[in-house]
Amino acid sequence: MLIGIESLENPPALPILLGSADWPRRGRRAVADVTGEGEQNWVDLLARVRDGQDEAAFAALFGHFAPRVKGFLMRGGAGEALAEECAQEVMATVWRKAHLFDPTRASVATWIFTIARNRRIDALRRQRRPEPEDLGWGPEPEPDQAAVMELQQESERVVEAVSRLPPNQRELIERAFFGELSHSEIAAETGLPLGTIKSRIRLALDRLRQNMS
């Protein structure tokens, strides 16, 4: 029996800014855009799409993520026309499912990645993808803001940690997520400090379970 959770349980290599007395409020805080194309708060933009069907907010999300989704799908084996079609489909799903996004459990980039991944399985592998049972939202429509902030910040740390990996290690991870490696070729040891983000997601799940019961 394998319980290989060690690589997820490693202590984080980065300092955790927990318990800081002056968390900036959501709305004023800008999530750094690591590509240097400016600063955006994807969570807020998605909330504007959700609440007001805000096309300007959606255009900003689209401008950033659509070319990435298309690049992701092409790297995963889709031709240009299919990748364009699927990228539109993925971004349309972002619009249509904006109210189902839970910012205490994932960053917007992570959430869009899961939609793009599922689209790839559907379109390229022509396979059904069983998904875990949905947990729903519970009675509280607005998630805890400190929890949102912590999770979003922790997601940025994962992005930074991936970009700092040695090139060969980073390439293996990229190939795994682009769908170029079979499950027997995937090495579980990512070399990434994922213990903290795992704990944050776990706390969010515990809160959700409490709300549901």
């Binding site: 993520f65 659509a66 690049g71 994962v158 990512t190």
Partner: peptide, 29 residues
């Protein structure tokens, strides 16, 4: 395991964020 999966999906999010970009069609939006 749901939380561990979420952590690994965050790595997928990072790969998407940092990965290759491909210009979309003019009328894409």
């Amino acid at each position: 395991c749901r939380a561990r999966l979420g952590a690994l999906e965050a790595v997928g999010g990072a790969v998407l964020e940092e990965g290759p970009r491909c210009a979309v069609a003019d009328d894409s939006l």
